[in-house]
Nucleic acid binder design. Structure first.
Lengths: 67, 67
DNA sequence: ACAAAATGTAAAATATAGTTGACAAAAAGT
DNA sequence: ACTTTTTGTCAACTATATTTTACATTTTGT
């Protein structure tokens, strides 16, 4: 899996630390870190929570062009 | 969780059975069934595969308005 | 240079996504 | 009415998302 730089950028735009975002989404900091690093595929529910926290759409942050 | 009727409708529009969609997405028929029934949250990777199979966007099929 | 905050990372545990096989109920075809 | 296809559902299993604890590294602030 590829790194999620779009998510990292959107988080930076909001001036949230990984910890901040984790708390808003009610997951651990490591989970946010792992998603940004592309280490695993989060559930859609978590993706939606992240999108709402960052004021972005699913397509903006999580669409994957490659197979 | 709520039923995913938008996904069911998009599948109907393509004239795919749950089995058809499952094979395209390389998951079991029961998994597709469970997602349409709203029994669990799929991973983003699977959501993207479903969207591609049904020619829909993530926002069209998987955005959740409620918390 | 130093301290504090933020990020990267790893191992062991838990929760839940997804599989497999099997059968019943409902819908569609003839 | 009958047969076939599709869908719903259940139980036991496997794979993996996510947690917790803990520590090292990097970045930021003073």
């Amino acid at each position: 899996m590829a790194k999620n730089l779009k998510m990292k950028a959107a988080r930076a735009l909001k001036d949230y630390t990984q910890q901040d975002l984790a708390e808003i989404c009610q997951v651990s900091r490591q989970t946010i870190n792992a998603i940004e690093k592309g280490e695993y595929n989060p559930t859609i529910h978590l993706c939606v929570a992240i999108c709402k926290a960052l004021d972005k759409s699913l397509d903006e942050l999580f669409w994957e062009e490659e197979t």
